[in-house]
Structure formats: structure tokens, C-alpha cells
Design a protein around this nucleic acid. Structure first.
Lengths: 136, 136
DNA sequence: ATGCCTAAAGATAATCATTATCTTTTGAGA
DNA sequence: TCTCAAAAGATAATGATTATCTTTAGGCAT
């Protein structure tokens, strides 16, 4: 598992405490935090952090493949540190979003679209948006 | 096929020319128009239309099950007049979004999740977000 | 280790989609 | 036709995100 520092260097980006803190916050918060969540979390360590910086850093991390954007029902952006192919469980009752990995399902879908092509469209990725309710 | 007028009356909503025009614009534009697209389209018939009104009407139509919101990669809301269960094809190159209906696929997915439950989660709907490129 | 230089952080203003507010207009039942 | 609440129009406000400008600090060369 390659570290954040290494990934940043690889891309020619400077390793700064803010970038580390923001990345780690997304990993730690882990349930697809909003910018607000991230700012709150970081304020504990870095009370002086600027909101603009958080936005900038998040964009840099997304552009360089360290984080992903996740769009929720509301029009606030959320972030995900899980970079492998996966699906999302959306809760109807709350705004909770959880990652869902299922290679068996991926195979099923892949096979299906290998057999049945969509005419006029070349598929690159298929992601499932599973809505429902958490029972726990 | 029940008409828009009837649907509005059914819900106790007044039938106004603006509501008709906005609904018809979404149907006519058909490729998941943005509010801007809709306003432009309507300005031809109703040059005096207010943008605020378009937003309000769209929200009313969504709340009453006449339209759906579709979120795109950008953070601008788009609208869809297709109310039946369906999936979306997202183009990587352009911002084109197309509806995709596939009952065979729906059956496959439904059967899969009937056999393999997600623990701690009750599924209500599964929608596929198919990204790729239009070849036409 | 020190200095230099550019990238990044901080602070603040600006933007832009969307919503709220308030007044005027109008659909539709009596 | 009259009435009245609901809807439209106009405009201001909001709130997330981006841009701008100044200050700070990584990190490479000396």
C-alpha cells in the first residue's frame, strides 16, 4: 500500500501538513464526509485552517487520483478515499452513503454487457446506485 | 397516457400556461435539460418568463411526480420527464445523459439481490450509472 | 545548514446556481 | 362576473464553491 506522501511526490506535488491532514480526515471520517465535516475534523489539529484551502486541496487530491467526489441527493459534494471500483448504498432516511464492493456482481454485470451490447455506446464503467434503508 | 393537465388537477394544482410550457419543454428537449436550457427554450414562447418561476415550477413538478431530478457530474441540476424505472448512460466526452431501459437487466439484478442479501440494508431500488462514450 | 524560488496556504471577495420574499396577477370555483 | 387563494414576476438573499491576491513554507541547489 503506497502512502499519501509517496503519491504526492509521484505527482510532483508538495507534501504539506494540510494535505496530509485533509487526506487523513477523509480516510478517518470514512463515511463520505462533506467539506464541512472535513473542516470540523481538521480544526482540532489545525484551528487556523482556511476553508478555501480545504476546497483547493480536495480538488488537487481528486485531480491526482487520491480521492473521489461523490454526489449525494443534496447538492453538496462529498468525498471518498476508496479508489477501487465500487458501488454505493444510499440511505433514504438519512444522508448516509456506504461503499459496496461485490466482485461477483461485477462479473455478472460485465458478462451481461459482453453479451448484450448497447448500440451506439461504448461502456467504460458500470456503477450501481443502490437506494434503500439501513436496518442497523 | 394521462395528460399533464389531468395530473396537475389530480394533485390539486392549478393548470397554468407556465407549468404547461415548462413541462413540455423538458419533454421536448428530452436530453435531461438544465434550468438554463429550459429557460432558453421557453423564452421563445414566453419572453417574459421569470427564472425564479422556472425553478419553482420544476420543484412543484418534481414533488408531485411529474418530473425527476437527475444529477450530473457538474453540480447543475438536470431534469427528466421519464418517470418509469430506468438507468442512465453518461458520456465522458460530453455532458450528454441518455435514458436506458432494460427489463432483462432489471430481472437479472433483482434475482441477484434476492439470492444475495446485503446485510444491514433493505434495498428499495437499484439504478445503474453507465459511463462511457457515445459512438454515434 | 542556508538561501532561494516557486508552489501552496491564508484571507477575503466574487461567482453562480438556487431559494426566499414580497407584490402583482390569474386560474377556477361560487 | 366576482372572489380569493394560489401562482407568477421581480428582486434580494443564501450558501456552496471558486478566484484573487498576499504571505508563508516545501524542497532543491549551493
Amino acid at each position: 500500500m503506497i502512502s499519501v506522501q509517496e503519491k504526492l511526490k509521484e505527482k510532483g506535488l508538495k507534501v504539506t501538513p494540510q494535505r496530509m491532514a485533509i487526506y487523513n480526515a477523509v480516510v478517518k471520517l470514512n463515511n463520505h464526509p462533506t467539506v464541512e465535516n472535513i473542516v470540523d475534523s481538521i480544526k482540532i489539529e489545525y484551528p487556523s485552517v482556511s476553508v478555501g484551502t480545504v476546497y483547493k486541496v480536495l480538488n488537487v487530491l481528486v485531480e491526482n487520483g487520491l480521492l473521489r467526489k461523490v454526489k449525494s441527493e443534496k447538492d453538496i459534494m462529498r468525498y471518498d478515499a476508496m479508489m477501487e471500483h465500487h458501488h454505493h448504498l444510499y440511505c433514504n432516511a438519512t444522508d448516509r452513503i456506504e461503499d459496496y464492493e461485490d466482485m461477483q456482481l461485477d462479473t455478472l454485470v460485465k458478462d451481461y454487457f459482453n453479451r448484450k451490447k448497447i448500440k451506439g455506446f461504448k461502456i467504460q464503467e458500470v456503477k450501481l446506485q443502490i437506494t434503500g434503508n439501513f436496518t442497523t
